[in-house]
Amino acid sequence: MQKKRLLYHGHRFPGVVISQAVRWYFRFQLSLRDIEELLFERGVVVSYETIRRWCDKFGARFAHDAKGARRKLGSTWHLDEMFVTLRGETYLLWRAVDQHGAELDVLVQRRRDKVAAKRFFKRVLAALPQAPRKIVTDRLRSYPAAKAEIPELANVRHVFVKACARVNNRAENSHQPTRERERRMRGFRWPERTQTFLSSFGPIRQHFALKRHLLRASIYRKQLAARFESWRLFTGNAQDPFAVF
């Protein structure tokens, strides 16, 4: 716990306030100014620019720990790419999820060719302990061309689906929170900042976004309480944030 507390060394505000602001930003459809107002309501006077710096500094660390706290990942990868416009230029956001919908990784790239697909495959492999049993993609020819050149994936079963049929629902549905956040932020701006934000946004949001419609209320509350407890553990804050506000 002492090492976790050192995360906030030199900051004027306690770690429980910082971690709460970071959680709000990545979990909910809130702007930095919205969070500034929520904190002010609780007696914490801080500017939205300070909150931005908190999210930049701690977001990736908390997202990494959130990934470590989730259940064992599935053995099937669903890959898909979506178009995003950054300052008038078109980019591709590549995303991989498992069969349970857990996000494996995202990558913003300019192209949609074999080199881009190969770079994404290698990135996902580097983040996971083992190769998948099956890969599901649309009929983009870049996927099989890149997969054939990666030894770890060469013999992995590859299933193709028609993009127009919307049958690769795991990957396509995983884009919806990003689209919603993109509209709330009035579009993304820079490739580097978009990559940084989305790399933290997915794991932190999913850490708390349980499938409530599939759970009884009592089970949902129990699992959500466990998620909050693990969040407090890896952010180094055993204290209830409302005890500070």
Rank of each mutant, 00 (worst) to 15 (best):
K4V: 12
R5W: 12
Y8K: 12
H11V: 03
F13Q: 15
G15A: 01
V16E: 15
Q20F: 13
Q20D: 06
W24Q: 06
F26R: 10
Q29I: 10
R33V: 00
F40G: 02
S47G: 11
S47K: 03
S47Q: 07
T50Q: 15
C55T: 09
D56M: 02
K57A: 03
G59K: 03
R61Y: 04
H64C: 10
H64G: 11
D65P: 07
D65H: 12
S75F: 04
H78T: 08
D80V: 00
E81N: 04
M82G: 13
F83D: 00
L92D: 08
W94Y: 15
R95E: 07
H100W: 07
E103A: 11
L104R: 08
L104K: 05
V106Y: 10
L107V: 00
V108P: 13
R112W: 03
D113V: 11
R119D: 11
R119E: 13
F120T: 12
F120P: 11
V124Q: 01
P129L: 03
A131H: 00
R133D: 06
R139N: 15
R139K: 15
Y143H: 03
K147G: 03
A148M: 07
P151S: 10
N155D: 11
R157D: 09
R157G: 01
R157E: 15
A163S: 14
C164R: 07
R166P: 04
R170Y: 06
R170P: 03
S174W: 02
Q176E: 13
R179D: 05
R179L: 07
E180H: 05
R183M: 05
R186Q: 13
R189I: 14
P191H: 09
E192V: 04
T194K: 02
T196Q: 14
L198E: 09
G202K: 04
K211P: 10
L215G: 02
A217N: 12
Y220A: 04
R221E: 15
F228Q: 11
W231N: 05
W231D: 04
